[in-house]
């Protein structure tokens, strides 16, 4: 399978379409970490992110949703993953969040930090993460998805626009609206060192 590992994405997809049994798996392995990063940030819950990725890859596998070549394969894969997440988030909005979500986040955070001790910054980081997630949950899905791609994951506005199939101006305005809505709930989390020397009365990284 060495040969397949080196084929370009488009070639893998066309081999897959012709019945090749390995090509699709090679393609998925190539991109799955990045797509996982998208899914976990959209969904916040590993199990839901995993479900969304499964939906997405099975959908990408099917001929009906097959790549048509007007964009990069990665963009197309992102679009499918984002749509799968969107579908699940829309359904989740209907029913209330389960209490286990917070526990899951704690687990992620512990794993991430590679320690289990109660270091103060660990506690505050977990807390701030929960705040971020809770705040994002309040946003309309369109704004949330734009912010997830652009602000959380660092995609360029034009990349996000292609993934979301909207104009770049739309991505920018969704991000701007989303940031404005998040500001009240996240202002206390902002990094202490602001680039400007203008601090409000609330600021002050120094306790003295």
């Amino acid at each position: 399978m060495e040969a397949a590992q080196e084929l370009p994405d488009k070639e893998l997809l066309s081999r897959h379409a012709q019945g090749d049994e390995q090509a699709f798996a090679v393609l998925v392995r190539r991109h799955r970490e990045r797509l996982w990063a998208v899914a976990i940030r959209m969904m916040h819950d590993p199990e839901e992110a995993s479900d969304a990725l499964q939906d997405a890859f099975l959908s990408a596998f099917r001929p009906a949703d097959r790549f048509r070549g007007e964009s990069q394969v990665t963009t197309w894969l992102h679009r499918i993953v984002v749509n799968a997440c969107h579908d699940r988030l829309r359904r989740r909005k209907v029913r209330p969040a389960t209490p286990t979500e917070d526990e899951t986040l704690d687990v992620i955070s512990n794993e991430r930090l590679g320690r289990t001790g109660g270091a103060p910054d660990h506690a505050s980081q977990t807390e701030s993460r929960l705040d971020v997630h809770a705040a994002l949950e309040q946003l309309p899905l369109d704004q949330r998805m734009a912010l997830t791609l652009v602000d959380m994951l660092g995609y360029r506005v034009d990349e996000a626009a292609e993934i979301l199939e909207v104009a770049t101006g739309t991505v920018k305005s969704r991000c701007a609206r989303g940031r404005a809505k998040l500001l009240p709930s996240l202002a206390h989390l902002r990094n202490p060192g602001l680039p400007r020397d203008v601090t409000s009365g609330r600021g002050g990284a120094n306790p003295s």
Partner: peptide
């Protein structure tokens, strides 16, 4: 507002 982006 730029801080929101950093937090995210």
């Amino acid at each position: 507002l730029a801080g929101v982006t950093r937090v995210l």
